[in-house]
């Protein structure tokens, strides 16, 4: 199946459309008072971003984001809502000035930072030329694993993955400690 030339255009189109969806979702989450709806939308947010990852060739990431963002996170949030409440109190003002200011400054800084960035998708960007090239070139051969992401994840940067596993382990311990059998809160 040869790659069609139109494919690239449509790739970018899909990219842009999905990003716009995300923006809509984000604003929706910001504005909605019903936490249940918020959780639903954040679930969609994860799904869309996972779709986006697929268009950007990050299939493993998409896989994970779908399983985690769409699944586990949503379920956990629902469980939380079930244990707490699904109504958000009316905030004092919908747009708060100081947070807004902070956000604008941060955002402006980031936009400023983008000005010297390599263009999106540019194959000549430094990111593709220094370390990653060797992963692509040697990885599958050196590890016998065709999925370069897995090769890097579990071998080259295996130590990171061990850290990642430890993070999950930590979260498990944390939940166990805080919600487990021994954590009955004294009613004081």
């Amino acid at each position: 199946m040869a790659r069609q030339e139109g494919g690239r255009v449509i790739e970018i189109l899909v990219d842009i459309v999905l990003l716009s969806f995300l923006a809509v979702m984000a604003v929706g989450i910001l504005r909605l008072r019903n936490l249940f709806a918020v959780v639903m939308l954040s679930g969609i947010y994860s799904l869309i971003s996972a779709g986006l990852f697929v268009t950007m060739d990050a299939v493993d990431v998409a896989f994970t984001e779908a399983a985690v963002g769409g699944g586990i996170s949503t379920v956990l949030m629902l469980a939380t809502l079930a244990l707490t409440t699904d109504k958000e109190k009316e905030p004092l003002a919908n747009l708060q000035i100081w947070p807004l200011l902070a956000v604008f400054i941060t955002g402006a800084a980031l936009i400023y930072g983008t000005l010297d960035m390599p263009s999106f998708g540019d194959p000549q960007a430094p990111i593709h030329l220094h370390v990653a090239d060797r992963y692509v070139a040697e990885g599958p051969g050196a590890t016998g694993v065709p999925n370069i992401v897995t090769a890097v994840l579990a071998s080259y940067r295996s130590y990171d993955t061990m850290g990642e596993l430890t993070v999950i382990f930590t979260a498990g311990i944390g939940v166990m400690l805080l919600l487990g059998a021994g954590s009955r809160r004294r009613k004081d």
Partner: peptide, 23 residues
């Protein structure tokens, strides 16, 4: 091929994210 390294990093970051969310 697209660059695999960001994918690897983000896989880790997602895990960190979900751990944080759970906590």
């Amino acid at each position: 091929y697209s660059n695999p390294l960001p994918h690897v990093l983000i896989l880790t970051a997602i895990v960190v994210g979900v751990a944080t969310t759970a906590l």
